[in-house]
């Protein structure tokens, strides 16, 4: 069956085939490039299946020493468990307080001057890029062991993350209501309170809950460098070879994080 468009169809088929082959060639070369890069880096990082298989007996041995978990240490570990939650809570609270003004300065539409905007964004990127563990290491050597450096470490990192998130939300508000408040003669702060904050509040509260959840996980890890809570009991028991107690700490960490995740996502759903 011949169509009035036959000439265009034939020509189109040739062009389409060429395009398809070109696209395939590009994708294959990109994939090949990735494979080469990965293969080159594999040797540098000592990837070795042989080592993993050889290490299995040691892992089994280690696991055997931890099992069964020492349940008598369960009660004394409840204190550190609460401490972990407290570290996360205070770290998050401090981050919320610090983020409020920083977010306003880091958003185009609420920042008093472009230079303030750039400096604040730079500062926040700095806070975000340094991991809590590094903060904790530095702070433990500065203020000593215990939960306080953990609180500060979490607060510093969370401030960077939270302030940037809130700033992005502020920049994406609907400008209509903001303009209406301007037209009504409201001042800058009033416009922020009545026009911007109500718009960003649900997303921000959801993010704060998410950050609290993340902070609990961080708080358990920070204990490993001395910053209190369940992580501290974990590393202490390991260094004293009391592996059954280590297992208990690990169990409680898993329990805590599971509970925090569940509560946090439940609350986030209720808000939105």
């Amino acid at each position: 069956m011949s169509s009035p468009y036959q000439a265009a169809i034939n020509q189109g088929l040739i062009r389409e085939a060429a395009w398809r082959h070109r696209r395939l060639a590009v994708r294959l070369s990109v994939a090949a490039g990735f494979v080469v890069l990965l293969w080159l880096s594999a040797s540098r990082i000592n990837l070795s299946l042989k080592n993993v298989i050889q290490g299995v007996p040691s892992m089994v041995d280690f696991f055997g020493r931890m099992f069964p978990p020492d349940l008598s240490s369960l009660m004394p570990l409840l204190g550190p468990m609460v401490e972990t939650v407290q570290i996360a809570a205070w770290g998050t609270v401090l981050a919320v307080v610090a983020s409020a003004p920083l977010a306003l300065l880091a958003a185009h539409n609420t920042s008093p001057h472009p230079s303030v905007y750039y400096v604040t964004r730079l500062f926040l990127n700095l806070l975000r890029s340094i991991n809590e563990l590094i903060y904790a290491l530095l702070l433990v050597s500065a203020v000593g062991l215990g939960p306080f450096p953990g609180v500060l470490a979490i607060a510093l990192h969370a401030t960077g993350m939270l302030a940037k998130f809130v700033a992005e939300e502020i920049e994406h508000v609907n400008r209509g209501p903001v303009e209406a408040l301007q037209a009504a003669g409201a001042g800058r702060m009033q416009i922020i309170l009545f026009g911007i904050m109500p718009q960003v509040l649900p997303a921000v509260v959801g993010y704060i809950l998410y950050r609290f959840d993340v902070s609990i996980r961080s708080a358990t890890v920070l204990g490993l460098v001395g910053a209190g809570g369940l992580g501290f009991t974990l590393i202490t028991s390991m260094k004293m070879f009391k592996y059954h107690e280590t297992a208990t700490s690990i169990l409680l960490i898993i329990l805590l994080i599971w509970a925090a995740d569940a509560i946090s996502s439940h609350l986030q759903k209720k808000i939105l």
């Binding site: 209509g176 037209a183 009504a184 003669g185 409201a186 001042g187 009545f194 649900p202």
Partner: peptide, 20 residues
């Protein structure tokens, strides 16, 4: 601000703060 106080404005898109 004082001048704007005396001038009210109504917009095509209403421009209310919908969550309030």
């Amino acid at each position: 601000r004082k001048a704007r106080r005396e001038i009210g404005m109504v917009f095509q898109q209403f421009n209310l703060v919908t969550r309030l």
